[in-house]
């Protein structure tokens, strides 16, 4: 292995014209490159402030365009909205599960999620708390109807929400296997541009990140976009603190 390492690096050096490093496989020694300095003329930030009405309006527009369901809610209405969305899962026709029936709904949440968000869940909802220390098996996650998570940052221009695996967002598997994802984004987490988000995320590059732009989709059949493949087929974004 180390032999391969030595040889690949020697070939790279030869290709760049660093003498004494041998040649590339075809026997070449390249000329040293003269790279231009990187021009950073692109926008480092958008013209609208973080969490501003313009940014939120654009975020909603982009999310809806990708067939995500957006709910703009006041902070105190969040638990009730989550409860309603979860209750809707138990019956395809929208009715509530009958008490005592086996039609109870299982919902997985990361262990660090704000308990207050789940305060008004219907009694028959079975909440599974998942953490790195006490992970739920993937096959069990497959039997779970929905997942509720927070988020790290949202990008309005692209309609993107980023999760970084912190305790209120959880392991990557929990926001992947269940078919419905309820994702809570606070208004002040919404930035306009990709560079703003990358610089924020760059503070902790070691955290596993998942960038989500709408429900899973494919363009593999005649390049037509079809929503809903392996990831959650339904994405509810609960945008908190935005006045609709």
């Amino acid at each position: 292995m180390s032999e391969a390492r030595t040889e690949v690096l020697a070939r790279v050096r030869a290709a760049l014209g660093q003498t004494g490093s041998g040649t590339t496989p075809s026997g070449r020694v390249g000329a040293p490159p003269h790279p231009e300095p990187v021009p950073r003329e692109y926008r480092a930030a958008g013209e609208h402030a973080v969490g501003s009405p313009e940014v939120l309006e654009q975020l909603v527009d982009r999310l809806v365009d990708y067939k995500a369901h957006v709910h703009q809610v006041a902070a105190d209405a969040l638990p009730a909205t989550i409860a309603t969305l979860v209750a809707d899962l138990s019956e395809p026709d929208g009715g509530m599960a009958r008490p005592g029936s086996d039609r109870s709904v299982r919902v997985v949440v990361p262990a660090g999620l704000d308990d207050a968000w789940l305060a008004t869940l219907p009694a028959e909802v079975d909440v599974v708390r998942d953490s790195r220390e006490d992970p739920t098996a993937a096959t069990d996650l497959d039997a779970v109807a929905a997942v509720v998570t927070a988020a790290r940052v949202a990008i309005s221009e692209t309609g993107t929400i980023v999760l970084d695996g912190e305790p209120d967002q959880g392991r990557r598997a929990i926001s992947l296997v269940p078919d419905v994802h309820l994702c809570v984004v606070r208004a002040e987490q919404a930035v306009q541009t990709v560079p703003e988000a990358v610089r924020l995320l760059g503070a902790h590059p070691e955290r596993p990140q998942t960038w989500i732009s709408g429900p899973s989709a494919t363009s593999d059949i005649e390049l037509d976009r079809v929503e809903g493949v392996h990831g959650p087929r339904t994405l509810h974004v609960l945008l908190v603190g935005a006045t609709p």
């Binding site: 990008i155 392991r171 598997a173 070691e206 960038w211 989500i212 429900p215 899973s216 976009r225 990831g231």
Partner: peptide
């Protein structure tokens, strides 16, 4: 994403660094 599938952003991007204990 804009050059490949003609989307503002592709549905999923995963970033990981080595091994994250307990996740993945």
């Amino acid at each position: 994403p804009r050059s490949s599938t003609g989307e503002r952003m592709n549905p999923y991007t995963s970033l990981w660094t080595g091994v994250t204990p307990g996740d993945g």
